[in-house]
């Protein structure tokens, strides 16, 4: 058991904290004068709560715990909308129920980023489809591109269905 724990632990350590330097990321031109001036991902991201995927950062946790303090607006007159309301979805499906937390989303986004062109602001009024999401529509506009990727099934499908065992491979 201890050996297993050690292996799992070392795996987590290895997964955390490997960011390519900009000059090796296959996007930046190593000859660009920007190299050496732009901030390197490792310098910024290694200080934030670690994740196993995406930018290897728990972005919501980083914001909630004050590791980062991203500005909410540029124009002083902009109204900041926060909503603390969970929506349960996929109530009749076979996979665990989806808990959609408005709070974590409105910490970053405005209502108008999703409503109503992606989702009607009405519980039960939207037909969601994993095929659509995997093609970059609906939740997939962000999840799979900038927010945690679609391999993390259980972060959304997070509420066990009564009478059905919880799936085993559960990233936190």
């Amino acid at each position: 058991m201890a050996v297993l724990a050690a292996i799992l632990f070392s795996g987590n350590v290895a997964a955390a904290g490997s960011w390519q330097p900009l000059q090796n990321d296959d996007l930046h031109d190593p000859a660009s004068p920007a190299i050496g001036l732009l901030q390197q991902p490792a310098e910024a991201l290694s200080k934030l709560p670690p994740d196993t995927t995406g930018n290897l950062v728990r972005w919501v946790e980083a914001l909630e715990k004050g590791h980062i303090e991203p500005r909410s607006n540029i124009f002083p007159e902009t109204k900041i909308n926060l909503l603390d309301k969970d929506i349960l979805m996929n109530l009749k499906g076979g996979t665990p129920i989806v808990r959609f937390p408005h709070r974590a989303h409105t910490l970053w986004l405005d209502c108008a980023n999703c409503h109503d062109h992606l989702f009607k602001a009405q519980t039960g009024g939207n037909k969601l489809s994993m095929m659509q999401i995997l093609q970059g529509e609906q939740c997939g506009v962000c999840h799979g591109a900038v927010a945690f990727p679609l391999t993390e099934c259980n972060r959304c499908h997070s509420v066990p269905r009564p009478g059905i065992a919880k799936p085993s491979a559960t990233p936190r």
């Binding site: 980062i68 405005d110 506009v141």
Partner: peptide
């Protein structure tokens, strides 16, 4: 050269809504 825009760099400093709501950048 092409422009490289890094979401990770910007979201440390600005919430998504600043660019995608106030500044009008569409999310595609």
């Amino acid at each position: 050269r092409p422009v490289i825009f890094s979401h990770w760099f910007h979201r440390i400093r600005f919430q998504c809504k600043v660019c995608h709501q106030e500044l009008g950048f569409k999310m595609r």
